[in-house]
């Protein structure tokens, strides 16, 4: 259930159709998240948190914008891959996603 509009929701996306694929376990900022095959990193993360990243210059919260791979505003950090788009990257088992530069990795 969404919170009242004056109180920003903890999750940003609302799922209205079920993903029926096998479960995929990932870790978002250290928190275990269960997604399903076919989900994008963006919908998995925005299903549990209300943003994807902090803007490098302004520090503003960002949650993606175009949702079709064009604006690059949804870049997150991965433990085992270069930074990249959350909206066009499918979830993978064991994936570690960060919405802040993870310690020990280059920003």
């Amino acid at each position: 259930m969404a919170a009242a509009p004056s109180d920003p929701p903890r999750q940003r996306l609302l799922r209205v159709a079920a993903c029926t694929g096998p479960e995929v376990a990932l870790v978002v900022d250290g928190q275990a998240v269960t997604a399903r095959e076919g989900e994008s990193v963006l919908s998995a993360v925005l299903g549990v948190v209300d943003h994807l990243r902090l803007h490098e210059v302004s520090g503003e919260l960002r949650a993606g914008f175009c949702l079709m791979g064009a604006c690059q505003d949804c870049w997150v950090w991965f433990a085992d891959a270069p930074r990249g788009r959350a909206c066009t990257t499918p979830v993978r088992e064991g994936m570690q996603v960060f919405t802040r530069p993870p310690p020990g990795l280059l920003p």
Partner: peptide, 21 residues
């Protein structure tokens, strides 16, 4: 956060089954 491009709002419903709000 929460402001999305119009086409994107529709795209995320079509391919992810999610509403933006």
């Amino acid at each position: 956060p929460g402001v999305f491009a119009l086409g994107g709002a529709q795209a995320v419903l079509k391919d992810q089954g999610c509403l933006i709000g």
